[in-house]
């Protein structure tokens, strides 16, 4: 199973993106999207942003579960209190695990925000952040 994670800032600008595959059942973690899907992934998530903007006001939780469906691929979303959106494109339904994953990513994101040299909506380029996200992916997905 493959996953595509993107974090979108308040100006609809991408801050971070990561493509990976499942680490369970002996898979090695590389994504198995076919090439056409690979190109379409960012667009799919971008289209989902409009849906988020509608749905986020209907609920008072941060995790918005599966909000969109693209030919069998599900898109789950999470909105932070600072209106930064985390989007995950995935193939199988897995609500609880994805919820934990998003919550932990939020913790990491808050720590990034605490650094004085990071301005809001900057792209996250720190390699340690990358490593930590991959560890979380290994843990939950």
């Amino acid at each position: 199973m493959s996953y595509y994670l993107a974090m979108i800032g308040t100006q609809d600008n991408p801050i971070y993106e990561l493509e990976f595959g499942s680490f369970r059942q002996g898979n090695d973690g590389t994504s198995k999207f076919n090439p056409e899907m690979k190109e379409l992934n960012p667009f799919i998530l971008h289209a989902a942003l409009d849906i988020i903007e509608d749905v986020q006001w209907e609920t008072n939780t941060l995790y918005l579960k599966a909000i969109d469906n693209f030919y069998g691929h599900l898109i789950s979303a999470y909105v932070t209190p600072g209106n930064v959106k985390f989007l995950l494109l995935h193939e199988t339904k897995n609500e609880e695990a994805i919820r934990h994953f998003f919550t932990d990513i939020n913790d990491l994101y808050v720590k990034v925000l605490l650094s004085p040299f990071y301005n809001a909506n900057d792209p996250i380029i720190s390699p340690s952040f990358d490593v930590k996200v991959k560890t979380l992916a290994k843990k939950y997905l």
Binding site: V112, S115, F117, Y118, I125, S128
Partner: peptide, 8 residues
């Protein structure tokens, strides 16, 4: 310097 990351 808690949570500080220097610019890259």
């Amino acid at each position: 310097a808690e949570f500080v990351e220097l610019p890259q």
